[in-house]
Write a protein that binds this DNA or RNA. Structure first.
Length: 486
RNA sequence: GCACCAUUAGCUCAGUUGGCUAGAGCACCUGACUCUUAAUCAGGGUGUCCGGGGUUCGAGUCCCUGAUGGUGCACCA
């Protein structure tokens, strides 16, 4: 295949270097003393000292016998001042052939130009890697979403805010770990390859194990394994990791995404509520330095305590219907019809409450709000409220109209749990592909006795979106799922 | 899954009612320049107009179809 001129020229430059015995790809290391930010931030102490830095050339201003260039490393950029007299004719001729995108190591004195820009007066420069592909244009960057997602490495080179998002993502994750570790939690790893996918209502990815000759499922949640560990006496556990759901993609859904689930013995959903607001506020404070943030133009106040409302109260408030007075499935269906919420004959009162909530309430929940007391029909793993067995000790957290967390007092009654699994299996047999499967071993674990336990799950990607003001989940995933081009 | 929009040079984008050899800026190439910073100055267009059909004397432009992406809806406790 014929290369365009722009690609051909760079390959020729590389071949020339190789022919002259200067193959940049044979260089194995470079000793740098500083990064660009250290020099910029500490200029007063560093002026006049000799440093070595390494990075990518991002621009070039060739003035004949002097060349200015900007070197970019992870922390920032610094200007290079490359003077013929300083480095000699032979090296300077090489420098003239350097391209934007090349990786170099330089040594030189820190100084400030007449125009006041902190720079390095280069005394030694060496090509550490040749770039054979031209970078996108210098002030518009890379805008094509398709290219940005498929070639994230280019996006990261030319769009600084992208790099920043993923540094914040890393800091958020570190901050969460520290928060939980400081409270005596232990981090665990449970299987991603499952023979029974459980802990959530979702369609799994199916794969095959050749030696065992069985189908296996990628996990859709970590819940059931983590609760087994509570049975085992680990008392406080968490797992942060990737889960997989074979469902649609959207601005807030990717087939693989990251959650944290945590379980703590001897507490309940109210304990989880406090932990949730403390943890998220703490993360925001540590990572962003504030608990008052802006998401897509809306101010969000993450300062605890957050709003709390039962699901039935929220429906009363936003749909003007009081389910305290609606006790039968038939009445509930009638109300749904009046509210123009589509329900089927099989739907029960609890399911209808949930459907009305989704239709009428979610869209109002901008500031952090805990919605509590979910119907038992939509909460197959949550403990019933002692004074009302139709409801569960559960909450979901909503911020910016999005579900951010889900938590409950964990159901530890093996007989009740088995009955709820049976109901799920019936739903599955009736065609609901997202209903839970029977997990006999999990029931067995509960039969040994699980202490009263609070459990919590948080969508890490959605939290990162919130804290980095990212519009799409794809903007917080380094390599979002993409369809192959051909 | 449905609808709408997009796809033109390495990148960011123009391209009129269907009309002559498809344009600009950056990048790149040649040359000048020892404090520039969107460096400047002089010269040079490097292209599968997303793919495949069709209409037409003539298609980047119109029609059909496919691909990928974006957005909305649906799906997703």
């Amino acid at each position: 295949m014929e290369l365009s001129e722009i690609l051909r020229v760079r390959r020729e430059k590389l071949a020339e270097l190789q022919d002259a015995g200067n193959d940049p790809f044979k260089i194995v290391k470079y000793n740098k003393t500083h990064n660009t930010k250290q020099i910029i931030d500490n200029f007063d102490e560093m002026e006049g000292t000799t440093v070595s830095v390494a990075g990518r050339l991002m621009s070039k201003r060739d003035m004949g016998k002097v060349t200015f260039s900007d070197l970019q490393d992870r922390e920032g950029r610094i200007q290079l001042y490359i003077r013929l007299n300083e480095i000699g004719e032979e090296v300077y001729t090489q420098v003239k052939k350097y391209d934007i995108g090349d990786i170099v190591g330089v040594k030189g004195e820190v100084f400030k130009t007449r125009k006041g820009e902190i720079s390095i007066k280069v005394s030694e420069i060496i090509l550490l890697s040749k770039s054979l592909q031209p970078l996108p244009e210098k002030w518009h960057g890379l805008k094509d979403m398709d290219l940005r997602y498929r070639q994230r490495y280019v996006d990261l080179i030319v769009n600084p805010e992208v790099k920043n998002t993923f540094i914040i993502r890393s800091n958020i994750i570190k901050s969460i770990r520290k928060f939980l570790d400081d409270r005596g939690y232990i981090e665990v790893d449970t299987p991603i390859l499952n023979t029974i996918p459980g802990g959530a209502a979702a369609r799994p990815f199916v794969t095959h194990h050749n030696t065992l000759d069985i189908d296996m499922y990628l996990r859709i949640a970590t819940e059931l394994h983590l609760k087994r560990l509570i049975v085992g006496g680990l008392e406080k556990v968490y797992e942060m990791g990737r889960i997989f759901r074979n469902e649609g993609m959207s601005i807030k859904h990717n087939p693989e995404f990251t959650t944290i689930e945590l379980y703590e013995a001897y507490t309940d959903y109210k304990g989880m509520m406090e932990l949730t607001e403390q943890m998220i506020a703490n993360v925001a404070q540590e990572v962003l330095g504030t608990t008052k943030i802006v998401y897509q133009g809306e101010e969000i106040d993450l300062t605890p305590p957050w709003n709390r409302m039962t699901m039935i109260e929220s429906i009363k408030k936003f749909a003007n219907v009081d389910f305290e007075n609606i006790t039968t499935d038939e009445e509930a269906r009638k109300v749904a019809k009046e509210l123009k919420v589509h329900v089927e004959d099989k739907h029960t009162r609890g399911e209808i409450i949930n459907l009305i909530f989704e239709e009428y309430v979610e869209g109002h929940l901008v500031q952090p709000t805990f919605i509590t007391d979910y119907p038992v029909e939509v909460s197959p793993l949550a403990k019933r409220k002692p004074d009302n067995p139709a409801l569960t000790e559960r909450f979901e957290l909503f911020i910016t109209r999005r579900e951010m967390a889900n938590a409950f007092s964990e159901l530890n009654d093996p007989i009740d749990q088995k009955e709820r699994f049976i109901k799920q299996v019936e739903a599955r047999e009736a065609g609901d592909e997202e209903a839970n499967m029977m997990d006999d071993d999990f029931i067995n674990a509960l039969e040994y006795g699980m202490p009263p336990t609070g459990g919590l799950g948080i969508g890490i990607d959605r939290l990162v979106m919130l804290l980095t003001d990212s519009y799409s989940i794809r903007d917080v995933l380094l390599f979002p799922t993409m369809k192959p081009k051909d």
